[in-house]
Simulated assay, not measured.
Amino acid sequence: MTEHLDTEPENEPDPTCSAKGCTAPAAWDLLWNNPKLHTPERRKVWLACDEHKGSLSDFLGARQFLKDVVPHQG
């Protein structure tokens, strides 16, 4: 089974943090899925800077959506 990742298109400008209003470069990929909407192997991606990694992870974790946090390979 192949893991599905939703990522930014390659022709996009440098990716930035997904936190509202943040323009810092992405340093982390927060891999998540909503089990009510997505198949178990699907992974959606939020990007996070170092400052927002914790708060975005906490938000997804509180909903039991967070699956993994890995360094951004931008």
Rank of each mutant, 00 (worst) to 15 (best):
T2N: 10
L5V: 03
D6Y: 11
T7W: 01
E8S: 11
P9Y: 02
N11R: 13
P13I: 12
D14M: 13
D14E: 15
S18Q: 02
A24C: 07
P25C: 02
W28F: 04
D29I: 04
L31F: 01
W32A: 03
W32F: 06
N33H: 10
N33F: 10
N34Y: 10
K36Q: 12
K36I: 09
L37R: 10
L37I: 09
L37G: 07
T39N: 13
T39V: 14
R42E: 15
R42G: 06
R43F: 06
V45K: 08
A48W: 00
A48F: 02
C49P: 04
C49Q: 02
C49R: 00
D50G: 08
E51F: 15
E51V: 09
E51D: 14
H52N: 08
K53R: 15
K53T: 01
S55M: 15
S55C: 14
L56H: 03
L56Q: 03
L56V: 12
S57F: 03
S57A: 12
D58W: 11
F59H: 13
F59M: 13
G61R: 03
A62L: 14
R63F: 11
R63I: 04
F65D: 03
F65G: 02
K67S: 05
D68P: 07
V69F: 06
P71I: 00
H72S: 14
H72C: 12
Q73L: 09
Q73P: 02
Q73F: 07
